[in-house]
């Protein structure tokens, strides 16, 4: 499996947010995308997920141009803003709600994922009462729980303490060994320096260095 981005461009209100981006992501690797705020990292990740339709170019996942088929890549999970959950449900209930859509995993597997990200003790607390770090853990667990082939994370280490960040890095390395494609965007390069196999830097919508 691979993700091929070919000459992808996107303009929003006269601003070129993605400028002829061409990249390839292969399985069994962790990729990092860095760059300052507004450089186009999140926009690139959203384009890979099919949330943003580019003005030009193609996104080919597993040989299929996603915008000519379903619009969304198969077997992909993504973590964007950590507040994209229902505040009135607990962290566990939020995950259970999402897992119930495809019914691929059991409640035990949700519990195991929460255990992995070290959120078991707070799993029944309402999401709205979580700290930023806990919310991030729910977001990470949401990506991990159904064991998808492609995992996309936007700023996953924001708000995590050192031990939690270390634990997440360890989990992601294990997933890489299982042959997953993992893409992480962050504005703090140090967060991913020892984790990623390849790091791309973005500026003004362009990939400027790798």
């Amino acid at each position: 499996m691979s993700i091929k981005i070919k000459n992808v461009s996107k303009k929003i209100k006269r601003e070129q947010v993605l400028d002829r981006v061409t990249l390839t992501f292969n399985e069994g690797h962790i990729y990092g995308i860095t760059g300052r705020n507004g450089s186009g990292k999140t926009m690139l990740l959203k384009t890979i997920c099919g949330f943003v339709v580019p003005d030009d170019g193609e996104v080919i996942v597993d040989g299929e141009n996603i915008f000519k088929t379903s619009g969304f890549p198969k077997d992909t999970r993504a973590m964007f803003d950590s507040s994209n959950y229902l505040n009135d449900l607990s962290g566990y209930e939020n995950l259970e709600l999402l897992a119930s859509i495809q019914n691929k995993i059991t409640k035990k597997e949700i519990d195991e994922t929460l255990e992995q990200v070290k959120l078991t003790t707070e799993k029944n607390k309402k999401f709205g009462k979580y700290s930023l770090g806990m919310k991030q853990k729910v977001g990470i667990a949401q990506v991990l729980m159904e064991d998808p082939k492609i995992m996309i994370f936007d700023e996953p280490f924001n708000g995590l303490d050192d031990n939690s960040a270390k634990n997440i890095r360890k989990i992601l390395k294990k997933k890489k060994e299982e042959g997953k494609i993992i893409i992480i965007a962050t504005h703090v390069k140090e967060d991913i320096e020892n984790l990623c196999d390849i790091i791309y830097r973005m500026d003004k919508g362009k990939v400027v260095k790798n």
């Binding site: 997920c49 379903s70 993504a78 964007f80 994209n84 959950y85 229902l86 859509i101 998808p148």
Partner: peptide, 16 residues
Amino acid sequence: ITYKKISYNLLPRLSS
């Protein structure tokens, strides 16, 4: 707004 908020989590699992 609630749907819009959680759409990024719903979309990979459910069609638009």
